[in-house]
Amino acid sequence: MFRLALAATVLMAAPVHAAETKEQSCQYQADVVAAIQQARLDRVKERDVPAAIAKTGPDWPENYNAAIPLITPWVYEQKMRDVRKKDLSAAWLELCLQQ
């Protein structure tokens, strides 16, 4: 959970486009989590996650790529059964919006 809070704090402190709302920022963060979760499901090695996600051409602003190395360990610490069955991005979005 500490990593979750740290990554959210880093992203919220990063310079963002003036039109970006907290809700949009949290959604981008949740999209990052979903991409990492998919990488885990695709059996991408943890150290290769940033490159694997970059190859997919994500549509979030580039500054959110900085969160990938911060969030990846959290996703990879989860039990595989939870990664398969739980929506980690929805959990992230909910926590982010509460901050």
Rank of each mutant, 00 (worst) to 15 (best):
D42R: 14
D82A: 15
M12P: 04
A14E: 12
V33S: 00
A52M: 08
L11R: 00
P58F: 05
A35M: 02
E46V: 15
L4T: 04
Q29V: 12
K22R: 09
K22A: 09
N65F: 05
D48K: 14
A67K: 02
A18M: 07
F2L: 15
Q38M: 08
L70C: 00
I71G: 01
K85L: 15
Q27Y: 10
L11Y: 03
E46F: 01
L97E: 14
L11T: 05
V33H: 05
T21K: 06
I36T: 06
D82I: 09
V33N: 01
S25Y: 02
V44E: 09
R43Y: 11
K86Q: 15
A35W: 05
I36Y: 04
Q98Y: 09
F2T: 12
V49A: 09
K86T: 08
H17L: 11
L4C: 07
A51I: 10
G57Y: 04
W60V: 05
R43V: 01
L88F: 15
H17P: 02
K22Y: 00
W92G: 01
V32S: 04
N63R: 13
A14Y: 09
D31I: 02
E46N: 01
V16C: 09
N65Q: 11
W74P: 03
F2W: 12
A34K: 13
E23H: 07
I71V: 14
P61K: 06
E20R: 08
V75G: 04
K79T: 11
D59Q: 13
R40V: 08
L93G: 03
R47S: 15
W92D: 03
T72M: 02
A18G: 02
L93W: 04
D48H: 12
M1Y: 11
A19N: 03
M80F: 15
A5T: 10
V75N: 00
E62K: 13
L11C: 08
Q38R: 11
P50E: 06
A39I: 05
R40A: 12
E77Q: 15
I53P: 07
E77G: 09
A18W: 06
C26A: 12
L6I: 12
